[in-house]
């Protein structure tokens, strides 16, 4: 479904990704983890074609994505920083994305779930960080696509919204989608993910299930396992 082949990305002298090979063949929830600056967001942006890899190829459904745009029809993306045009209202933004995507969209249930109704005619610039993130989630989840990428979906969300989000992610999974998530909230990752891809200094350092990680690091606690894997003995 998704295949990264030998992906290297350099920003000037800074090497962010180094020959990353990763293939995701079956549906499920994949957590992309790693310390700050390990290349998680860059990897995701490479997949979307927002960042152009220095070398390597990316395939979505067997098609090389380089220079293409049609493959983005299959991807829903939640960007990490929810910055939107400030002078646009929520409704206008929703309408614009709907016209661009030309797909059936179901935004109403999401608007209800996140309680966004009172904000629909407000300008994006006047919304709080958490509310913006909720709009961000509606935009990402309103269309039905086989691949869903969520970059830090929890940031700024209140506990109630977080609960709803977890439910939504589970529903998406049941539909047989491939979901990539990056997050620093370990409990969320432990609860949801089928597999973990751990990035360290631009390379894939570990890939496997949560249990496999615990076994490898000989810990029972997931947080502890993550801390262990970062220690020199495991690196």
């Amino acid at each position: 479904m998704i295949e990264f082949k030998n992906i290297t990305k350099k920003f000037g002298k800074l090497q962010v990704l180094e020959q990353v090979d990763l293939s995701i063949n079956k549906p499920g929830i994949y957590a992309i983890l790693g310390p700050n600056g390990s290349g998680k967001t860059t990897l995701i942006k490479c997949l979307l074609g927002m960042t152009i890899p220095t070398s390597g190829q990316i395939f979505v459904d067997g098609q090389d994505t380089k220079g293409k745009w049609e493959f983005r029809n299959q991807i829903s993306y939640l960007p990490q920083i929810a910055n939107f045009p400030k002078n646009m209202t929520v409704t206008e933004l929703l309408r614009l994305i709907k016209t661009l995507r030309k797909q059936a969209s179901a935004e109403q249930p999401l608007i209800d779930v996140f309680g966004l109704k009172p904000y629909l005619n407000k300008n994006m610039g006047t919304l709080s960080g958490g509310t913006k993130q909720k709009v961000n989630l509606v935009l990402a989840l309103m269309t039905d696509n086989p691949i869903v990428i969520l970059d830090e979906p929890t940031s700024g969300l209140d506990p109630l919204a977080l609960l709803e989000l977890k439910k939504l992610i589970k529903i998406e999974k049941e539909k047989g989608k491939t979901i990539l998530i990056t997050s620093h909230i370990m409990s969320l990752v432990e609860e949801l993910s089928d597999e973990i891809v751990f990035l360290l200094e631009g390379k894939i350092h570990f890939r496997g299930t949560v249990d496999a990680l615990k076994t490898k690091t000989q810990t029972v606690d997931f947080d502890e396992a993550i801390a262990q894997i970062l220690k020199p003995s495991h690196v």
């Binding site: 983005r72 994305i97 661009l100």
Partner: peptide, 9 residues
């Protein structure tokens, strides 16, 4: 950035 993630050239 928002537009770049959408299916457009």
């Amino acid at each position: 950035e928002l537009l770049l993630a959408q299916p457009i050239k």
